[in-house]
Protein backbone atom coordinates (compact mmCIF):
# COMPACT_ATOMS: atom_id res chain seq x y z
CA UNK A 1 0.00 0.00 0.00
CA UNK A 2 1.59 3.21 -1.09
CA UNK A 3 0.78 6.68 0.00
CA UNK A 4 1.17 9.86 -1.96
CA UNK A 5 0.68 13.50 -1.16
CA UNK A 6 -3.03 13.65 -1.96
CA UNK A 7 -3.77 10.70 0.30
CA UNK A 8 -1.93 12.27 3.19
CA UNK A 9 -3.55 15.65 2.58
CA UNK A 10 -6.98 14.05 2.46
CA UNK A 11 -6.35 12.17 5.70
CA UNK A 12 -5.18 15.29 7.51
CA UNK A 13 -8.08 17.33 6.11
CA UNK A 14 -10.51 14.69 7.32
CA UNK A 15 -8.99 14.69 10.80
CA UNK A 16 -9.03 18.49 11.02
CA UNK A 17 -12.64 18.78 9.88
CA UNK A 18 -13.87 16.06 12.22
CA UNK A 19 -11.95 17.51 15.15
CA UNK A 20 -13.39 20.99 14.58
CA UNK A 21 -16.92 19.69 14.12
CA UNK A 22 -16.72 17.56 17.24
CA UNK A 23 -15.37 20.39 19.38
CA UNK A 24 -18.08 22.72 18.11
CA UNK A 25 -20.76 20.10 18.69
CA UNK A 26 -19.49 19.47 22.21
CA UNK A 27 -19.51 23.19 23.00
CA UNK A 28 -23.04 23.61 21.74
CA UNK A 29 -24.16 20.41 23.42
CA UNK A 30 -23.30 22.10 26.72
CA UNK A 31 -25.55 25.02 25.76
CA UNK A 32 -28.31 22.68 24.55
CA UNK A 33 -28.14 20.76 27.80
CA UNK A 34 -28.46 23.91 29.89
CA UNK A 35 -31.37 25.20 27.81
CA UNK A 36 -33.19 21.87 27.80
CA UNK A 37 -32.71 21.33 31.52
CA UNK A 38 -34.07 24.83 31.98
CA UNK A 39 -37.12 24.04 29.90
CA UNK A 40 -37.73 20.80 31.79
CA UNK A 41 -37.68 22.84 35.01
CA UNK A 42 -39.88 25.55 33.44
CA UNK A 43 -37.25 28.25 33.27
CA UNK A 44 -35.12 29.78 30.54
CA UNK A 45 -31.63 28.48 30.11
CA UNK A 46 -28.76 30.86 29.43
CA UNK A 47 -30.11 33.52 27.06
CA UNK A 48 -28.01 36.59 27.76
CA UNK A 49 -24.87 36.22 25.61
CA UNK A 50 -25.77 36.81 22.01
CA UNK A 51 -29.13 36.06 20.41
CA UNK A 52 -30.86 33.25 22.33
CA UNK A 53 -27.62 32.78 24.25
CA UNK A 54 -25.89 31.32 21.21
CA UNK A 55 -22.52 32.85 22.10
CA UNK A 56 -22.60 31.35 25.60
CA UNK A 57 -20.10 28.53 24.78
CA UNK A 58 -17.58 31.14 23.63
CA UNK A 59 -18.05 33.11 26.82
CA UNK A 60 -17.63 29.92 28.85
CA UNK A 61 -14.48 29.06 26.94
CA UNK A 62 -12.95 32.47 27.61
CA UNK A 63 -13.88 32.18 31.26
CA UNK A 64 -12.19 28.80 31.57
CA UNK A 65 -9.09 30.04 29.74
CA UNK A 66 -8.50 33.03 31.97
CA UNK A 67 -9.34 31.40 35.29
CA UNK A 68 -6.60 30.70 37.75
CA UNK A 69 -5.13 27.23 37.55
CA UNK A 70 -5.05 25.95 41.11
CA UNK A 71 -2.91 23.04 42.22
CA UNK A 72 -3.87 21.82 45.68
CA UNK A 73 -1.16 21.48 48.30
CA UNK A 74 0.25 17.99 48.50
CA UNK A 75 -1.08 17.04 45.08
CA UNK A 76 0.87 14.65 42.92
CA UNK A 77 2.06 17.21 40.39
CA UNK A 78 2.54 15.24 37.19
CA UNK A 79 -0.43 12.97 37.57
CA UNK A 80 -2.58 15.96 38.49
CA UNK A 81 -1.56 17.68 35.28
CA UNK A 82 -1.83 14.53 33.19
CA UNK A 83 -5.22 13.23 34.32
CA UNK A 84 -7.53 15.65 32.39
CA UNK A 85 -5.76 14.78 29.17
CA UNK A 86 -6.06 11.09 29.98
CA UNK A 87 -9.80 11.58 30.36
CA UNK A 88 -10.30 13.68 27.22
CA UNK A 89 -8.00 12.01 24.69
CA UNK A 90 -9.68 8.56 24.61
CA UNK A 91 -13.02 10.30 24.02
CA UNK A 92 -11.57 12.13 21.01
CA UNK A 93 -9.90 8.95 19.78
CA UNK A 94 -13.21 7.08 19.87
CA UNK A 95 -14.65 9.67 17.48
CA UNK A 96 -12.03 8.70 14.89
CA UNK A 97 -13.52 5.20 14.66
CA UNK A 98 -17.05 6.18 13.77
CA UNK A 99 -18.20 5.95 10.15
CA UNK A 100 -20.46 8.93 9.58
CA UNK A 101 -21.27 8.75 5.90
CA UNK A 102 -21.09 6.78 2.70
CA UNK A 103 -17.64 6.80 1.06
CA UNK A 104 -17.23 9.76 -1.27
CA UNK A 105 -14.86 10.28 -4.16
CA UNK A 106 -12.28 13.07 -4.16
CA UNK A 107 -9.66 13.46 -6.92
CA UNK A 108 -10.70 10.17 -8.38
CA UNK A 109 -10.10 8.07 -5.30
CA UNK A 110 -12.60 6.76 -2.76
CA UNK A 111 -12.45 8.38 0.64
CA UNK A 112 -14.20 6.63 3.48
CA UNK A 113 -16.07 9.03 5.76
CA UNK A 114 -14.18 7.73 8.76
CA UNK A 115 -10.71 8.51 10.03
CA UNK A 116 -9.61 4.89 10.37
CA UNK A 117 -11.44 1.75 9.42
CA UNK A 118 -9.63 -0.92 11.40
CA UNK A 119 -10.59 -4.56 11.21
CA UNK A 120 -10.78 -4.52 15.02
CA UNK A 121 -12.55 -1.17 15.34
CA UNK A 122 -15.15 -2.40 17.81
CA UNK A 123 -12.47 -3.82 20.10
CA UNK A 124 -10.48 -0.62 19.84
CA UNK A 125 -13.55 1.26 21.02
CA UNK A 126 -13.82 -0.98 24.08
CA UNK A 127 -10.08 -0.54 24.65
CA UNK A 128 -10.26 3.23 24.57
CA UNK A 129 -13.25 3.36 26.85
CA UNK A 130 -11.34 1.19 29.32
CA UNK A 131 -8.31 3.49 29.08
CA UNK A 132 -10.57 6.46 29.87
CA UNK A 133 -10.94 5.06 33.40
CA UNK A 134 -7.41 6.26 34.22
CA UNK A 135 -8.33 9.93 33.83
CA UNK A 136 -11.01 9.57 36.48
CA UNK A 137 -8.94 7.44 38.80
CA UNK A 138 -5.68 9.37 38.64
CA UNK A 139 -7.35 12.78 38.67
CA UNK A 140 -9.13 11.96 41.89
CA UNK A 141 -6.17 10.25 43.47
CA UNK A 142 -3.63 12.95 42.59
CA UNK A 143 -5.78 15.75 44.02
CA UNK A 144 -4.94 14.74 47.59
CA UNK A 145 -8.49 15.29 48.76
CA UNK A 146 -10.94 12.96 50.47
CA UNK A 147 -13.85 13.72 48.19
CA UNK A 148 -11.78 13.30 45.06
CA UNK A 149 -10.38 10.00 46.27
CA UNK A 150 -13.83 8.67 47.13
CA UNK A 151 -15.10 9.80 43.75
CA UNK A 152 -12.28 8.13 41.89
CA UNK A 153 -12.58 4.84 43.77
CA UNK A 154 -16.30 4.81 43.05
CA UNK A 155 -15.58 5.71 39.43
CA UNK A 156 -13.10 2.86 39.06
CA UNK A 157 -15.55 0.29 40.38
CA UNK A 158 -18.43 1.63 38.32
CA UNK A 159 -16.57 1.97 35.03
CA UNK A 160 -14.94 -1.48 35.04
CA UNK A 161 -18.28 -3.06 35.94
CA UNK A 162 -20.24 -1.35 33.20
CA UNK A 163 -17.50 -1.96 30.64
CA UNK A 164 -18.22 -5.67 31.00
CA UNK A 165 -21.91 -5.30 30.25
CA UNK A 166 -21.10 -2.96 27.38
CA UNK A 167 -18.74 -5.50 25.86
CA UNK A 168 -21.21 -8.34 26.39
CA UNK A 169 -24.03 -6.38 24.77
CA UNK A 170 -21.88 -5.83 21.69
CA UNK A 171 -21.16 -9.55 21.21
CA UNK A 172 -24.56 -10.23 19.52
CA UNK A 173 -23.87 -7.33 17.15
CA UNK A 174 -20.59 -8.95 16.14
CA UNK A 175 -22.33 -12.29 15.79
CA UNK A 176 -24.92 -10.81 13.46
CA UNK A 177 -22.54 -8.63 11.44
CA UNK A 178 -19.77 -11.28 11.45
CA UNK A 179 -17.12 -8.57 11.72
CA UNK A 180 -15.40 -6.25 14.13
CA UNK A 181 -15.04 -3.65 11.40
CA UNK A 182 -17.41 -0.73 11.94
CA UNK A 183 -18.00 -0.08 8.25
CA UNK A 184 -19.01 -3.72 7.77
CA UNK A 185 -21.31 -3.53 10.78
CA UNK A 186 -23.01 -0.54 9.17
CA UNK A 187 -23.24 -2.36 5.84
CA UNK A 188 -24.80 -5.38 7.51
CA UNK A 189 -27.69 -3.17 8.63
CA UNK A 190 -28.63 -2.06 5.15
CA UNK A 191 -31.72 -4.22 5.21
CA UNK A 192 -32.68 -4.19 8.87
CA UNK A 193 -31.38 -2.30 11.84
CA UNK A 194 -29.94 -4.44 14.60
CA UNK A 195 -32.25 -2.85 17.12
CA UNK A 196 -35.03 -4.95 15.55
CA UNK A 197 -33.12 -8.20 16.15
CA UNK A 198 -31.47 -7.17 19.41
CA UNK A 199 -33.74 -4.90 21.48
CA UNK A 200 -32.39 -6.31 24.75
CA UNK A 201 -28.77 -5.83 23.73
CA UNK A 202 -29.64 -2.29 22.69
CA UNK A 203 -31.18 -1.54 26.08
CA UNK A 204 -28.18 -2.98 27.90
CA UNK A 205 -25.80 -1.00 25.70
CA UNK A 206 -27.80 2.18 26.31
CA UNK A 207 -27.70 1.74 30.09
CA UNK A 208 -23.98 0.92 29.93
CA UNK A 209 -23.07 3.98 27.88
CA UNK A 210 -25.00 6.21 30.25
CA UNK A 211 -22.93 4.69 33.04
CA UNK A 212 -19.72 5.03 31.00
CA UNK A 213 -20.40 8.73 30.49
CA UNK A 214 -21.08 9.09 34.23
CA UNK A 215 -24.38 10.78 33.44
CA UNK A 216 -27.12 11.33 35.91
CA UNK A 217 -28.79 8.14 36.99
CA UNK A 218 -25.25 6.76 37.29
CA UNK A 219 -23.21 9.84 38.22
CA UNK A 220 -21.90 8.24 41.39
CA UNK A 221 -18.26 9.38 40.83
CA UNK A 222 -19.23 13.03 40.80
CA UNK A 223 -22.36 12.96 42.94
CA UNK A 224 -22.52 16.62 43.88
CA UNK A 225 -24.86 16.06 46.79
CA UNK A 226 -22.35 13.81 48.53
CA UNK A 227 -18.89 14.37 47.10
CA UNK A 228 -18.87 18.08 46.11
CA UNK A 229 -17.88 17.27 42.53
CA UNK A 230 -16.23 13.90 42.94
CA UNK A 231 -12.98 13.32 41.12
CA UNK A 232 -12.74 16.83 39.65
CA UNK A 233 -13.43 18.72 42.85
CA UNK A 234 -9.95 20.23 42.97
CA UNK A 235 -9.66 21.11 39.30
CA UNK A 236 -10.12 24.62 37.98
CA UNK A 237 -9.67 26.59 34.82
CA UNK A 238 -8.50 24.83 31.70
CA UNK A 239 -7.97 21.46 33.35
CA UNK A 240 -11.54 21.36 34.56
CA UNK A 241 -12.52 22.45 31.05
CA UNK A 242 -10.75 19.41 29.61
CA UNK A 243 -12.68 17.07 31.90
CA UNK A 244 -15.87 18.89 31.00
CA UNK A 245 -15.37 18.93 27.22
CA UNK A 246 -14.16 15.33 27.37
CA UNK A 247 -17.44 14.31 28.97
CA UNK A 248 -19.49 15.95 26.22
CA UNK A 249 -17.31 14.59 23.42
CA UNK A 250 -17.81 11.22 25.05
CA UNK A 251 -21.58 11.68 24.90
CA UNK A 252 -21.47 12.50 21.19
CA UNK A 253 -19.04 9.67 20.43
CA UNK A 254 -20.98 7.06 22.36
CA UNK A 255 -24.24 8.27 20.85
CA UNK A 256 -22.70 7.96 17.40
CA UNK A 257 -21.45 4.46 18.23
CA UNK A 258 -24.86 3.41 19.52
CA UNK A 259 -26.33 4.66 16.24
CA UNK A 260 -23.64 2.74 14.34
CA UNK A 261 -24.16 -0.52 16.20
CA UNK A 262 -27.93 -0.61 16.49
CA UNK A 263 -29.61 2.07 14.39
CA UNK A 264 -27.98 1.41 11.04
CA UNK A 265 -25.32 4.11 11.17
CA UNK A 266 -25.66 6.53 8.31
CA UNK A 267 -28.27 4.50 6.43
CA UNK A 268 -31.57 6.24 5.97
CA UNK A 269 -33.97 7.33 3.27
CA UNK A 270 -34.14 10.71 1.51
CA UNK A 271 -31.69 12.76 3.58
CA UNK A 272 -27.91 12.68 2.95
CA UNK A 273 -26.03 10.10 5.05
CA UNK A 274 -24.08 12.58 7.16
CA UNK A 275 -27.31 14.28 8.17
CA UNK A 276 -28.90 10.95 9.08
CA UNK A 277 -25.89 10.11 11.19
CA UNK A 278 -25.99 13.46 12.99
CA UNK A 279 -29.72 13.11 13.64
CA UNK A 280 -29.24 9.68 15.19
CA UNK A 281 -26.22 10.66 17.27
CA UNK A 282 -27.81 13.85 18.55
CA UNK A 283 -31.01 11.96 19.38
CA UNK A 284 -28.92 9.94 21.81
CA UNK A 285 -27.45 13.15 23.20
CA UNK A 286 -30.99 14.46 23.67
CA UNK A 287 -31.95 11.24 25.43
CA UNK A 288 -29.00 11.67 27.80
CA UNK A 289 -30.09 15.20 28.67
CA UNK A 290 -33.69 14.13 29.05
CA UNK A 291 -32.69 11.34 31.41
CA UNK A 292 -30.67 13.83 33.40
CA UNK A 293 -33.70 16.06 33.75
CA UNK A 294 -35.91 13.20 34.88
CA UNK A 295 -34.21 10.57 36.97
CA UNK A 296 -32.70 10.72 40.46
CA UNK A 297 -29.26 9.35 41.25
CA UNK A 298 -28.88 5.67 42.11
CA UNK A 299 -27.30 4.60 45.35
CA UNK A 300 -23.84 3.04 45.05
CA UNK A 301 -24.86 -0.46 46.12
CA UNK A 302 -27.94 -0.36 43.89
CA UNK A 303 -25.67 0.54 40.98
CA UNK A 304 -23.31 -2.41 41.50
CA UNK A 305 -26.19 -4.76 42.26
CA UNK A 306 -27.95 -3.73 39.04
CA UNK A 307 -24.82 -4.25 36.96
CA UNK A 308 -23.67 -7.61 38.32
CA UNK A 309 -26.91 -9.30 39.24
CA UNK A 310 -29.24 -8.03 36.52
CA UNK A 311 -27.44 -6.70 33.45
CA UNK A 312 -24.58 -9.21 33.19
CA UNK A 313 -26.76 -12.37 33.40
CA UNK A 314 -29.29 -10.89 30.99
CA UNK A 315 -26.52 -10.00 28.54
CA UNK A 316 -25.06 -13.54 28.77
CA UNK A 317 -28.49 -15.10 28.21
CA UNK A 318 -28.97 -12.78 25.26
CA UNK A 319 -25.71 -13.98 23.70
CA UNK A 320 -26.81 -17.58 24.20
CA UNK A 321 -30.21 -16.89 22.63
CA UNK A 322 -28.57 -15.14 19.68
CA UNK A 323 -26.27 -18.12 19.20
CA UNK A 324 -29.22 -20.53 19.12
CA UNK A 325 -31.08 -18.19 16.79
CA UNK A 326 -28.20 -18.06 14.32
CA UNK A 327 -27.65 -21.82 14.59
CA UNK A 328 -31.30 -22.73 14.02
CA UNK A 329 -32.51 -20.04 11.64
CA UNK A 330 -29.17 -19.70 9.90
CA UNK A 331 -29.44 -15.96 9.57
CA UNK A 332 -26.53 -13.70 8.81
Amino acid sequence: MSYDLIDIALAFGKIAVIFMVILLLAAYLVLAERVLLGRIQERFGPNRVGPFGLLQPIADGIKMLVKEDVKPAGADKWLFYLAPAMAAIPAIMIVSLIPFGAPLTFFGRPVGMQVVDLNVGLLLFIGFSSIAVYGVALGGWASNSKYSLLGSVRGLAQLISYEITMGLSLVPVVMLARSFQLSEIVDAQKTGWFILYQPIAFLIFLISIVAECRRIPFDIPEAEGELVAGFHTEYSGLRFGLFFVGEYINIIALGGLAATFFLGGWHGPLLPPVLWFLIKALAFAFLFIWLRGTLPRLRYDQLMHFCWKVLTPVALLNILATGWFILLVGKG
Partner: peptide, 17 residues
Protein backbone atom coordinates in the same frame (compact mmCIF):
# COMPACT_ATOMS: atom_id res chain seq x y z
CA UNK B 1 -41.45 10.42 34.84
CA UNK B 2 -39.98 10.86 31.39
CA UNK B 3 -43.41 11.63 29.96
CA UNK B 4 -43.90 14.29 32.62
CA UNK B 5 -40.62 16.01 31.82
CA UNK B 6 -41.30 15.68 28.08
CA UNK B 7 -44.52 17.66 28.53
CA UNK B 8 -42.66 20.30 30.53
CA UNK B 9 -40.23 20.98 27.67
CA UNK B 10 -42.93 22.62 25.59
CA UNK B 11 -44.42 24.76 28.33
CA UNK B 12 -43.77 28.45 28.66
CA UNK B 13 -41.11 29.06 31.29
CA UNK B 14 -42.35 30.68 34.47
CA UNK B 15 -39.26 32.83 34.87
CA UNK B 16 -39.69 36.61 34.87
CA UNK B 17 -36.83 38.21 32.96
Amino acid sequence: GMWTTWKRIFRRPLTIQ
